[in-house]
């Protein structure tokens, strides 16, 4: 199968990165790890800003919200301010629901033909696991602030405590790690197994999932199977944050792999489909207010066009109009 090649390739790519990281770790990485984090983070930030500015530079010539509920019209008709926002509050609410709750994906259904007719079943798994994956990722990222703040922010400590509420093992298994991997597993399997989704999947689709999975897996391995000296890790992280980078002391191979995957992930993010992180905020069908008829929207490049004027029209049809008894401008 042609589409399986992409899966294979992405596995190979991940493996290659892991090996490279291992090699870099052996070959006395310190120098490397003084530049790499800044390079990756710089690419991430600059790339992200660049992409957003690039989108922003293109105007939104027309107001094209996709309306998914009753619009605001006559006062006695109950409108749906969230799915069909009539004002900025509604639009903000709609975006918030989209970003935090994956509102549109919540609508998802599954179509199949049964007994010669299409039926539409509820299909919330993608929504559920998608939300679980993204939410877990957010928690994981926030938790890592413990390596970047000194003293550790109380909120971060609280979040970690909540996340490790179930005392599974020592150190306690973070639930977000488990749910993150579960979400990733669902998304990957879905992509690799469902024929339709596999058909549309590109190399980058698998690679993105596997890269994040690699980050999560190396992180989990470090926490539970190949412990590292957290003091040294934090010293390294704080070194970066204070622009006084120090090489990780006694860094393990897994740590190098973890870092390498993270650097590649954040450096690649702005230039990949993962940029949907920023893009969702800009989507005109979602972030616009449906007030087209009550407030004029301006198109900055409203190019003049050639039209067929009434004069030209009457000139052509004047006789016929007169014959039909229709009024004309010019007798």
């Amino acid at each position: 199968m042609k589409q399986s090649v992409n899966i294979l390739l992405s596995f190979i790519a991940i493996l290659a990165i892991a090996l490279a990281a291992a090699a870099a770790g052996r070959a006395d990485a310190p120098g490397w790890f003084r530049i790499l984090p800044y390079a990756a983070f710089g690419l991430f930030l600059a790339g992200f800003v660049y992409r957003v500015i690039r989108w922003a530079k293109a105007p939104v010539p027309f107001r094209i919200p996709a309306t998914c509920g009753q619009g605001k019209s006559l006062p006695w008709i109950k409108s749906n301010p969230l799915d069909n926002p009539a004002g900025p509050l509604g639009a903000i609410g709609r975006m918030a629901a989209e970003i935090f709750l994956f509102r549109s994906l919540f609508r998802n259904s599954q179509t199949e033909i049964v007994d010669g007719r299409p039926v539409y079943g509820s299909a919330k798994w993608l929504w559920f696991f998608g939300l679980m994956f993204h939410g877990s990722l957010l928690v994981v990222v926030l938790r890592h602030l413990r390596f970047f703040t000194e003293p550790v922010l109380p909120a971060v400590t609280g979040l970690s405590a909540l996340d490790g509420f179930l005392e599974i093992g020592v150190p306690a298994l973070y639930l977000s790690d488990a749910t993150l991997l579960a979400g990733l597993a669902f998304l990957f399997l879905r992509r690799a197994v469902l024929p339709q989704v596999r058909y549309i999947s590109l190399f980058a689709d698998y690679f993105a999932l596997l890269l994040i999975a690699a980050v999560a897996a190396t992180g989990l391995l470090m926490r539970h199977f190949f412990p590292v000296d957290l003091n040294a890790v934090k010293t390294m992280a704080m070194g970066w944050a204070t622009f006084a980078p120090v090489a990780p002391k006694d860094g393990s191979v897994i740590l190098y792999m973890h870092l390498c995957f993270v650097f590649i992930l954040i450096a690649w993010l702005p230039f990949s489909k993962l940029m949907h992180l920023g893009g969702i905020f800009m989507s005109p069908t979602r972030n616009m207010i449906n007030n087209n008829r009550s407030l004029r929207h301006i198109n900055p490049w409203n190019t003049p066009v050639k039209v067929h004027t009434y004069k030209e029209y009457e000139d052509e049809f004047r006789d016929k109009m007169k014959a039909a008894g229709l009024p004309v401008e010019k007798e």
């Binding site: 049964v114 007994d115 039926v119 539409y120 079943g121 509820s122």
Partner: peptide, 8 residues
Amino acid sequence: LACTKKEI
């Protein structure tokens, strides 16, 4: 329930 809804 899902099948009832889909009428299958």
